[in-house]
Design a protein around this nucleic acid. Structure first.
Lengths: 336, 336
DNA sequence: GTGAAAGCGCTAACAG
DNA sequence: CTGTTAGCGCTTTCAC
């Protein structure tokens, strides 16, 4: 392995100069050229460990989320990467192996080993020992959609989104509005479904309607589950509209309606949350989240804190209604 | 920041002993306990940079794939993580920002900075300078489904899979078998679609049938594209079966058939590739790949090379036919 | 089983 | 703009 000293010799300068030239610090053009030539000639590759050790920084940040494979979390990842890449930072991912039973999220050893300069946590409410350690070390931590004491939060207004979705339905004249909500096991990391249920109920109450518990069905976060939940909901005395906790659930409902011969949106309106990449294809009305932007923001906050000592101030994520063809006025009501 | 020397003092031992105790090397039980107590008391967190520098290893491996968000690649990621986590390794991900135009995959700086001990590359055929550098440094590289000179390959038998899918259809009596194949732009990293086309054609030829180019439609790797491709294919003089390059494409075709009033499988059989997590829900017959296993294998190979100096020997990934309800005998042909 | 000491390769003062 | 030098915090011979 060729080290910086060898490069220095070949270039006829000191190691300090090589270091400076390579890190974009003050160096004459001529010197820089010589250094670069030597680097090229020798195939020199800097040791990041040595560099990090000397600097006290690793230029690596971590990302952890319950399910890296899920659309939402991988979109966040994408957003983070984009922000980091231009800053020359690396991304270390931690996928908790035991996401279901979150008692004991085993975040890999690196969290213990001081390997990252900052951490982004999505949808995990439980601070593990590892995370506590990070906080102790004064590393910036920003969470997306979850609350961790000592961390900066980009908050997701689940109640607001659910309310907006439900209000859209109400504004179309619907009064019997069903809800397909994702699972909230006691141990689950995210209270998301609880809050969305609340948003649904609040919107109805505000409109002088009642949140009928019989119009609620429990689902998982997938199509299959949405399909079955919807089939139940669409039995006797069915609702004229359904609000689903996610687009995948909503699409399941869409397919269920189709199989039952119920026309969407003429006989049944359906709205989801996410603006999942398949939502457009299905013509699904939805409350769009912008996870890529969320990830990007999280990374940017951390980078600014790290590089410019900017304070980490909490934000709240944006969302918006996207109307497509799965929602319309209640049957029998004239369009306005 | 508390360092190893402080811990050593508190425990009344030398730094060498602390290091050994913490790394599971020879140390008496009593000593180990003292060290651990001091660590606990002081909140000591080891510096990975220092450790890596001294060791010459980072205990971090990299993973890069064209689209980390896609089902296939995120499954691989999952498999890698599982293997690494038990070994105490970390995972650094590189998502090439410009995956479409793969001329210039900008793998983040870390590849230049000697930050990883090994690399896993999925579906990228182009060796960037960064990857070359890694090879020069003698870091183990294993690819999944792509060929990189100097790297060990876990090969994906795309031809074989396509052939198996098509043969399944043929064995059911189909003779007019359409193909929805994903895009193969000149610059694309993966020749996958080309090979699957070939598998389709070979199977037909072997059976004395002809691969009718008019029964082929170009698609992207998504439902929407599959939907539109299928609609074209299902016009005049339509095939009785369709083989799609991926389950998502196949599902698009499924929905297109439904919208056209064509019953699956009675009037049209459809088979995909992947065993995507929604395939079961749609009753889709498919050729299952096991990306999690592939990722796991890749990581295991690298770990064994790193830890036990085991040779990196190429493997080939397994696949299998999973018959569900989207395929059946050709219309008018009695079931056998 | 344990201690002393010599690096690992780079960066950041500090001087010049 | 550039050279000298003192670490950064840990691991690993080599003795004992």
């Amino acid at each position: 392995m060729v080290d910086i000293a060898t490069v220095a010799q070949h270039a006829g300068v000191s190691t300090a100069t090589v270091s400076r030239a390579l890190n974009g610090k003050s160096a004459s053009d001529k010197t820089r050229r010589k250094v670069l030539a030597a680097v090229e000639e020798l195939g020199y590759v800097m040791s990041s460990s040595a560099s990090s050790l000397a600097r006290g920084r690793t230029r690596t940040i971590g990302y952890t989320a319950p399910y890296l494979g899920r659309w939402y979390f991988s979109e966040i990842l994408q957003g983070i990467e984009t922000a980091l890449i231009t800053a020359g930072y690396d991304l270390l991912v931690y996928s908790p192996q035991d996401a279901a039973n979150q008692r004991d999220i085993t975040l890999p050893t690196s969290l213990r080993k001081n390997v990252i300069d900052g951490l982004i946590v999505a949808s995990i409410d439980i601070a593990t020992d590892n995370i506590h350690t990070l906080q102790t070390l004064g590393k910036p931590i920003v969470t997306i959609g979850s609350t961790l004491t000592g961390a900066t939060e980009i908050s997701i207004d689940d109640i607001g989104m659910a309310q907006m979705a439900t209000e859209h339905l109400i504004s179309l004249g619907h009064t019997r509005i069903g809800h397909l909500g994702a699972d909230t096991t006691p141990d689950a990391t995210f209270r998301l479904s609880e809050r969305r249920y609340q948003g649904w109920a609040t919107a109805l109450t505000n409109a002088g309607l009642t949140a009928d518990p019989t119009l609620y069905r429990h689902t998982d976060f997938d199509m299959q589950s949405g399909y079955h939940g919807a089939k139940q909901l669409l039995g006797h005395h069915r609702p004229t509209a359904i609000f689903a906790d996610s687009d995948e659930i909503a699409i399941g409902a869409l397919l269920a309606a189709r199989d039952l011969g119920i026309r969407v949106p003429d006989e049944l309106s359906i709205i989801g949350i996410d603006n999942h990449n398949t939502a457009e294809f299905f013509g699904l009305t939805t409350i769009a989240q912008h996870p890529t932007a969320q990830g990007n923001l999280a990374a940017t906050l951390i980078l600014n804190a790290l590089e410019n000592d900017e304070p980490l101030i909490p934000r709240t994520a944006e969302f918006e209604l996207i109307v497509r063809s799965s929602t319309t006025g209640v049957p029998g009501t004239p369009a306005h």
